[in-house]
């Protein structure tokens, strides 16, 4: 463990908590993409199957259980409890166009051709693009509530911090995984225009308005 990865995990946890607070306090999931939340749940389930086979640490097991349970809870809140506030019309991204290519790519480019490894690789590729429905929704509605933009900033920062973690681990431990690094780089790049808007607008107290 290093400071970059710990900061990344905490930023990730913060994002998930911010999302739950937004939905619970406003009793609405307006402006949130249910499709992205479904993709995140698939990412965590397919990545954390090793929960039952490998014990790394209490921290590792605890965080995996938190990520899986909160992602399922978010989907429940969006599609059941606050279903009436879910923005079906704008949340129209076809996630099969992400699921199928990621799975096929995982079959082609992976570290080992075993079920657990293929699923881990699939989850890494899927996580890189899982935010697309959410960014697509924000671009269609043209704006986002400030707490939603804080959620996106924390979520985008987590993988950016992981990039620093991988640089650190390469030099400190000689450990690296090109699949995780390339996917993490793409994932972070997808947030760049949002990061720009967040820093130039939201941090100045303005609302996140995308140029129409």
């Amino acid at each position: 463990m290093n400071i970059f990865r710990l900061a990344g995990d905490l930023s990730h946890l913060l994002a998930i908590i911010l999302l739950l607070i937004k939905i619970w306090k406003t009793r609405s999931c307006a402006g949130i993409s249910g499709k992205s939340q479904i993709l995140f749940a698939i990412v965590y389930v397919s990545r954390y199957l090793d929960l039952v086979t490998t014990f790394i640490s209490v921290y590792n097991t605890f965080m995996k259980l938190v990520f899986i349970s909160t992602s399922v809870a978010t989907i429940y809140l969006m599609y059941v409890k606050f279903k009436a506030t879910y923005d079906h019309n704008h949340d129209s991204f076809r996630i099969e166009f992400l699921l199928v290519p990621c799975f096929l790519l995982a079959l082609l480019i992976n570290n080992a051709f075993t079920p657990l490894e293929i699923l881990w690789t699939f989850s890494i590729y899927l996580e890189a693009v899982a935010i697309l429905p959410q960014l697509f929704l924000v671009s269609k509605t043209g704006e986002a509530e400030s707490i939603t933009s804080h959620y996106l900033f924390a979520l985008g920062s987590y993988r950016a911090l992981y990039l620093l973690n991988w640089i650190y681990r390469y030099y400190a431990e000689g450990h690296y995984d090109l699949i995780a690094i390339f996917a993490g780089a793409i994932q972070t790049i997808l947030y760049c225009d949002f990061f720009y808007l967040y820093i130039t607008k939201v941090l100045k107290g303005k609302k996140l308005q995308l140029p129409a």
Partner: peptide, 10 residues
């Protein structure tokens, strides 16, 4: 990359 090393990340 050692097996455990790679899989100790979230």
């Amino acid at each position: 990359a050692n097996r455990l090393g790679k899989k100790d990340e979230l």
